[in-house]
């Protein structure tokens, strides 16, 4: 191939691929992708990944459940139904029931503003949204002690009016909201940015108001991402330890959440009870992952083809 070799000299790199293509035609490749590592490397990588997951995820999960059930189902359920445990479960559900809707609202609002509009201070807002991820949860808790604590900025005022925030339920709610703020917003921002605002503009041109556009176009388009964000937010809200630990005060039956209750039980050498309560959190994360997988499956399914359905 004289032409090819001439090109090869003059154009160098780019033509080398050209030559390979032509050689490829002469010797047809056996149906395989162009990029392929040797069998050994592939097996090795897969093995490392599986081993890592087994040691760091699977084994601890199994340990939680075996330890929890070690002394039998009786002890297991007794540890879950004793008053202190029940009150911890109740408080955790209560806190999540406030923190998750609050962050659903804030997260959607922030994501909408960031993805669809340009305004001064936008990059600052993006940075602030990430702050709770960047900051240690202990510091997140301390912030609230410094503001609302007896020695804090608002301490004297709060004492005068007999309002308790830290070492009480409101402090736990505040700390949880702070720590879980980024989940919904972080999930939605890239999704909304990728979708652009053309569909919204189309809705407006068809006479829809801003609200109608939001409820009928913007929100339905991000519903699976939103569900995932809410799930992660919820899992963290129920499982948060650090920030809540600082503001809680660990008052049994009053300001103990599930993670704090687990710690107390563990420190009191009540291992079976500790693991039993911990297994609740483990179950929560398993359910979260399950729903998340269904959501992801739905997203990819709807991205490819949707089942035709009747237009009502």
């Amino acid at each position: 191939m004289p032409v090819e070799s001439a090109n090869n000299r003059s154009l160098g790199f780019s033509v080398i691929t050209n030559v390979q293509i032509i050689e490829g035609r002469a010797r047809p490749p056996k149906g395989r992708p162009a990029i392929r590592d040797s069998l050994g490397i592939r097996l090795g990588l897969i093995l490392v990944a599986i081993l890592f997951l087994a040691v760091f995820v699977l084994v601890p999960l199994i340990v939680v459940f075996t330890e929890a059930l070690k002394k039998g189902l009786g002890v297991y359920f007794a540890s879950l139904t004793e008053p202190a445990a029940l009150s911890a479960i109740e408080l955790t559900l209560f806190v999540a029931a406030i923190a998750v809707p609050a962050n659903l609202f804030f997260g959607v609002a922030a994501a909408w503003a960031i993805a669809k509009f340009d305004f001064p201070g936008k990059s600052l807002l993006i940075t602030l949204i990430d702050l709770p991820f960047a900051v240690s949860p202990v510091i997140a808790g301390l912030i609230y002690i410094l503001i609302f604590g007896a020695q804090g900025w608002l301490g004297p005022f709060l004492q005068e009016h007999d309002i308790k925030i830290v070492f009480a339920v409101p402090g736990i709610v505040l700390a949880t909201i702070f720590v879980t703020f980024p989940f919904v917003a972080r999930e939605l921002i890239p999704l909304m940015q990728a979708q652009g605002s053309e569909e919204e503009q189309a809705a407006l041109s068809l006479g829809a108001s801003g609200w109608q556009t939001f409820w009928r176009v913007t929100l339905p388009n991000v519903r699976w991402g939103l569900l995932y964000g809410v799930l992660l937010c919820n899992a963290r809200a129920m499982g948060e330890f650090g920030a809540v630990s600082v503001v809680s005060g660990h008052i049994r039956g009053l300001t103990n959440t599930i993670p704090l209750h687990v710690e107390i039980l563990y420190n009191e050498y009540k291992f079976s009870a500790a693991f039993a309560v911990a297994s609740l959190l483990a179950l929560l994360s398993l359910v979260t992952l399950l729903i998340k997988s269904i959501a992801t499956w739905n997203v990819s399914a709807s991205a490819q083809l949707r089942e035709p359905s009747t237009g009502k």
Binding site: E198, E199, Q201, A202, A203, R223, S309, G311
Partner: peptide, 14 residues
């Protein structure tokens, strides 16, 4: 619109 901007979560009817 150039890329039509059809509502992707709605049927043709909707």
């Amino acid at each position: 619109f150039q890329n039509y901007a059809l509502f992707r979560h709605m049927t043709v009817y909707k």
